[in-house]
Design a protein around this nucleic acid. Structure first.
Lengths: 223, 223
DNA sequence: CCATAAATACTCCGTTTGGGTGATGTTTTA
DNA sequence: TAAAACATCACCCAAACGGAGTATTTATGG
């Protein structure tokens, strides 16, 4: 046993079976890492986390964004709330501004694209433990732009998901269980407009159903 | 001005236009009542309540159960949370056990059927102010039966809405935004069964859409 | 002044939902 | 033991929803 170099405890949350398997296999080659938790969904992750919390604590989580049920951004929010000491790297194919922005907002401290070479992934994990914030170059570019453009928003963080006032008003009614038609009548708009708004709301919140939107909105006090 | 007999401040929450109008007109004939708030929905009620809270405080609310958006039971829950001193009479056509039970659970202290003669309604309001619990006779009968049959449940109030374990499991997945098919795959049941469960859940919760179910479930910690 | 965002309205299309109805077997419990 | 819940599966139908477009108007700000 090598006592002077403690291994870094790593978790993978990834729903794609083959990808998860290959990534796990690869990480096993790196002797200063210990892959101590592998999950295929956020629920699975939290379940396993609660069962293994007596063991050595987790250091870093590689979190996929697109997950069934609870997505990676939500899961990150939840994990940071309950275990702020664990570092989270979003590990994903997405490089759109909203997902990056949201990830940072909810507390991820790294953002790697999935095509990152495995050596770089491992280095990122080590940097993370040293207090760094490993980010893929193309992502870093976007982050800098966001810091320039959305500085106020990033600082205040007042309006989650950047919903416009009209969208918020409509979202509130969605939360109340109303149909598009009912909402339309209430706000004196055509049902199609309401639909358009809702579609835009979904885009911003990264959900695709009313139920998911309601849950997210209630979880992050948008009401 | 008659100082020795202060008038009782009454509110009506009722979405049916004509019914609300007629009821308002009738109550105006009773000089010891003051109809100080009339609303056609829960949202309208809370909005008006917050604007008039400087005036004389409300004493009694006549609350319809079937309301657009937030239903009367939910509204009662909310009102009792924020204004526990206000007495609420459920004023409705429903006399099914679940609604009665739910109404009592959320804090209503009266339950009148809508065909109650106006004189009796007014008496009920006065009794309410005296600390009574005016209940229509046919409702009272049911309440007694419930006290006999559901005593434990009524006392512990552990499981809101009396959802069965299977139903709770499915509801949790609805909250996560999954479709019936996805839920079916997860719990190894046919989509038809999932649908049946969800329909039963709706019946018990008195909602008719996923969004409404999610909102209610999150509001009353079923998760 | 022009780019951009927001709000508005509409179409097409396939999927999902929700309501109604019905059936069968098991478990609980009154 | 008989009635009541629970769980399971199935089908029909209409309404609602969600995704992907297109397009006009109006602010707003750089």
């Amino acid at each position: 046993m090598d006592l002077e170099v403690p291994r870094i405890n790593v978790a993978i949350v990834e729903d794609h079976d083959i990808f998860r398997k290959r990534l796990s296999e690869l990480l096993y080659f790196y002797k200063d890492l210990k892959l101590s938790l592998v999950a295929d969904s956020a629920e699975d992750f939290f379940e396993k986390l609660s069962r293994t919390q007596n063991d050595e604590p987790l250091d870093v989580v590689l979190m996929d964004i697109e997950l069934p049920g609870i997505n990676g951004i939500e899961a990150t929010f939840e994990l940071k709330r309950t275990h702020p000491e664990i570092d989270i790297i979003m590990f994903t194919v997405f490089e759109d501004d909203e997902r990056i922005f949201d990830s940072i907002q909810v507390g991820a401290t790294g953002y790697l694209l999935k095509d990152t070479p495995i050596d770089d992934v491992v280095n990122a994990i080590k940097e993370m433990k040293e207090g760094g914030s490993p980010i893929s170059p193309s992502i870093a570019r976007r982050v800098f732009e966001m810091m320039r453009n959305h500085k106020e928003k990033a600082e205040t963080g007042e309006v989650p998901f950047d919903l416009s006032p009209a969208e918020i008003k409509i979202l509130e009614q969605v939360i109340e269980g109303k149909t598009n038609k009912e909402i339309a009548e209430d706000v004196f708009l055509s049902p199609w407009t309401v639909k358009t708004h809702i579609k835009n709301i979904y885009k911003k919140m990264h959900v695709n159903s009313r139920a998911a939107a309601v849950r997210l909105a209630l979880k992050r006090n948008i009401v």
